[in-house]
Amino acid sequence: MSGYDDPERWDAAARHYATTAHPFTARYAEAALADVPLGPETHVLDVAAGTGALALAAARTGAQVLATDFSPGMVARITEAGLPNVEARVMDGQALALPDGRFEAVFSIFGVILFPDWRRGLAEMARVTKGGGYGVVATWQRGGAATFLLLSEVRGRLFPEIEGMPMPEGVLALSDPEDFARELVAAGYRDPHITFVTHDFELDVAALDAPETLFGMSQDWARLSEAQRAAILDEMRRMAAGRPILPVPSTALIAVARR
């Protein structure tokens, strides 16, 4: 397993993810919703929902939302929100236990891109999208985002002799807009429109005192020695230059397509 496809790792990270990554990814979720008309009669599916940044935002439109994730810990965080129009289920996005054409809008915000078989994930999204409905997928640029991007950049500058771990195949394959569009069409969608959206991940510099909560999911971090980790943390503090927050500009590609 790469780590990204291990539900137990996501279970362990779920509560911290809800307080750090969720507010950040929610900004991209709002951008993903901007071009998709939703309302009380709309049935929405959020695939690999994490702690529900997209699902909870979609629910505010009155839509009926089903959020799925393979991590019980993530699903539990969504359930805790207690919204009457949001159902959360443990489910593998590569084999959705759902009928064909069930949803007017199907989203995956930084989820399907991490699947071992991300093409199958896209095809499953298309299968359960109603004819004329919307499929929306968000991915990162090749370098990733947030703490992953920051760690990669600092490690490469301080320790160029250490080869970084490759990004997930789905991120690499979809980081070019033309390739992204082609894969969506191959999955069963049509007329994809792709936009670039950039937001700053606001790293709380004080959180560097507990780096495992920030970098524990990164395979790059796991490969570093204690001395290398300390040097990287010192460099990040230097970059902050006394500020409590270190901004990390992070760019996503958001695709909206029709079924």
Rank of each mutant, 00 (worst) to 15 (best):
M1P: 07
Y17V: 04
T20H: 07
A21R: 03
F24I: 06
F24H: 00
T25H: 03
T25Q: 06
A29S: 11
A34M: 11
G39K: 13
H43Y: 15
V44G: 00
V44T: 03
A48M: 08
T51S: 09
L54T: 04
R60F: 13
R60N: 14
T61L: 06
Q64M: 15
L66I: 09
T68I: 07
D69I: 02
P72D: 10
G73M: 02
A81P: 05
G82N: 10
L98W: 14
A105C: 12
A105T: 07
A105G: 09
V106M: 07
S108E: 02
P116A: 07
K130L: 15
V136L: 05
W140G: 00
A146V: 05
F148A: 08
L151W: 00
S152W: 10
V154A: 09
G156E: 04
F159S: 04
G164R: 01
P166H: 07
P166D: 08
A173R: 05
A173T: 04
D176S: 10
A181T: 08
A186Y: 13
A186L: 13
G188M: 06
T198P: 02
T198F: 08
H199I: 09
E202L: 12
V205M: 07
A207V: 09
A210Y: 14
A210R: 14
P211A: 10
E212A: 13
E212G: 12
T213R: 13
T213D: 15
G216K: 03
G216C: 08
M217W: 05
D220H: 09
D220V: 06
E226A: 12
Q228N: 05
A230W: 13
M236D: 03
R238W: 15
M239N: 10
M239Q: 10
I245T: 11
P249D: 07
P249W: 02
A257M: 10
R258C: 12
R259S: 11
